[in-house]
């Protein structure tokens, strides 16, 4: 009996070692451990051996059973592992192929610029407000101290709906709306569509975009205005960007200035893009709010002062991305939009 068991063990161990697939493993399990398995049958014969040997043989049989089971489970693990490896070996793919089924939409470059500017000014304490595209002559011109005889009021410059209602020519009427609604102190910005009677060409569009900013508080100075613009330009175009405040004229600010920045092409060296001046011109107009404008909105110009600034976003967008034709911004050609 003892020899028989040992023989079964020897044979089983050798068989298990030679296993090369899971099916044979199951066969082997049945062969030894199944209901009619060799080991099972051998154990059934326990009754035939002398009583005193039974515990010893029994112990041996159990030991052998555990050994076979242990070996079987190790063999199973080994085989599974091998199978997995072989499967992955077979599953080699061409990783150079693209499927092109996922799509992420593209943000319009101009609206992207607006959003960035809004976020930037929000971080500087400005609140975003909105104004209508269709405006009154009163808010678009009169309240902004625009002279009655100013050419910008002509039919050849401004789109009119009635004598008193027009398409706003700038975002500045938002200043008036804000000052009439909000008591100072206030810090607002407003971006949006503006309209001027310009035929379409590569640098003109009858519809374009501006961003307007306004600060009203006690003791606001030109120095504050310049600091605000300086911070904004550096954020937008980089720390090495220089700004130049050039005295200018706007009816609604006094003093007024235009802001030039280092030429985007030559960074200030002077090139054909900047007529050799080293400056990119007229990026932004700004100034201290004209006392008449403050008074028009019911704000005491002796108590409060403020500054305003406005800029063309289309141009900023074009400069940032090297876009040479403003029409591209409004044609919505996928081949253009999907570059951003």
């Amino acid at each position: 009996m003892r020899e028989k068991l040992k023989r079964i063990r020897k044979e089983a161990m050798s068989n298990i070692e030679g296993l090369d697939n899971l099916d044979s493993l199951e066969d082997l399990r049945i062969k030894y451990m199944g209901k009619k398995g060799e080991l099972t049958l051998a154990l059934r014969e326990m009754g035939k051996i002398p009583k005193e040997e039974r515990p010893i043989i029994g112990a041996l049989a159990n030991e052998i059973r555990q050994q076979i089971e242990g070996e079987l489970s190790r063999a199973k693990a080994r085989l599974m592992d091998e199978m997995k490896r072989k499967r992955m070996e077979r599953e080699k793919i061409d990783i150079s192929i693209s499927k092109n089924t996922r799509k992420l939409g593209h943000q319009h470059p101009l609206l992207h610029t607006i959003k960035e500017l809004e976020d930037l000014f929000i971080s500087m304490g400005f609140t975003v407000v909105d104004g209508p595209e269709v405006e009154t002559v009163q808010y678009n011109f009169d309240a902004l101290n625009s002279p009655e005889n100013h050419p910008s009021r002509d039919f050849s410059d401004t789109f009119y709906i009635t004598e008193d209602i027009l398409l706003r020519t700038h975002t500045s009427p938002v200043q008036i709306r804000a000052m009439k609604q909000i008591k100072p102190p206030l810090r607002i910005i407003s971006a949006g569509r503006t309209f001027r009677f310009d035929d379409v060409d590569d640098t003109h569009s009858p519809m374009f975009h501006q961003l307007e900013g306004l600060v009203i508080d006690k003791k606001v100075t030109m120095a504050n205005l310049m600091h605000t613009i300086d911070v904004f330009i550096k954020e937008l175009f980089g720390e090495d960007m220089k700004t130049r405040f050039r005295p200018h004229h706007f009816p609604f600010t006094e003093p007024s200035a235009e802001v030039d920045v280092s030429c985007f092409e030559c960074k200030g060296e002077g090139c054909t893009h900047c007529n050799g001046t080293g400056w990119s011109m007229e990026l932004l107009g700004c100034g201290m709010v004209h006392p008449k404008v403050l008074e028009n909105c019911g704000i005491d110009s002796e108590e409060y002062s403020g500054f305003a600034f406005g800029m063309g976003i289309d141009r900023i967008t074009m400069v940032r991305h090297g876009i040479d034709d403003i029409r591209l911004l409004f044609e919505n050609d996928n081949r253009f939009l999907e570059q951003f």
């Binding site: 609140t127 102190p185 100075t221």
Partner: peptide, 20 residues
């Protein structure tokens, strides 16, 4: 010369910007 005016940050009561 505006460029000769030393720039100064805004001071005042408002510090937090908002989006509607």
């Amino acid at each position: 010369g505006f460029h000769n005016i030393p720039i100064k940050p805004l001071v005042g009561t408002l510090t937090r910007g908002e989006k509607p």
